[in-house]
């Protein structure tokens, strides 16, 4: 039997493609990606929201999609057809969690089809200022920036 495996690079590549597919489909935004993630640090001073989900099995990793609150409202407004001003905090949290759920779910389906053993946890979302996430493995973390007009998002994948 062929050994099937997945490393962080492959996982990250699949996730990057999934971000573009899922966000384009759900919002109609024209999404571009950028490997330069240095702007992520500036995020620390603004109110941020992060959708988070873990994959577990052939590879253990946490997937986090972060954006500022205003961008998240815009994203969820386009997803739902509800005006940004009419969205509740819970809508926005739910929307970000569901986006991560969709993109991780899609990648999981691809990898399981290849014969990998992967489970996914329930998604959750966190908002706040100066958010920092700390993981067991400090080194193995990959980040990518996505831009759609004024909306800026960061996908970060960390090995756990």
């Amino acid at each position: 039997m062929d050994m099937v495996s997945v490393d962080m690079k492959k996982l990250n590549g699949l996730l990057n493609r999934a971000v573009i597919d899922v966000i384009t489909t759900m919002t109609g935004f024209d999404v571009e990606d950028d490997p330069d993630c240095s702007q992520f640090a500036e995020f620390e001073s603004v109110e941020t929201i992060i959708g988070v989900m873990a994959v577990f099995g052939s590879i253990d990793a946490v997937v986090a999609l972060a954006t500022d609150i205003n961008s998240s409202k815009l994203i969820v407004a386009y997803m739902t057809g509800i005006m940004p001003t009419d969205l509740t905090d819970e809508d926005v949290h739910d929307g970000m969690a569901e986006l991560v759920n969709m993109l991780v779910g899609r990648v999981k389906a691809d990898l399981v089809r290849e014969g990998l053993d992967l489970s996914i946890t329930s998604p959750f979302s966190i908002s706040g200022t100066n958010i920092e996430m700390v993981f067991k493995d400090r080194e193995n973390r990959i980040c990518r920036r996505f831009i759609a007009g004024d909306v800026e998002m960061f996908l970060s994948v960390a090995k756990i």
């Binding site: 969820v76 997803m79 739902t80 057809g81 739910d94 969690a97």
Partner: peptide, 12 residues
């Protein structure tokens, strides 16, 4: 189970 998916479906 996702409230947001229900809202998306509602608007459609």
């Amino acid at each position: 189970d996702s409230a947001i998916v229900r809202k998306i479906i509602r608007s459609a």
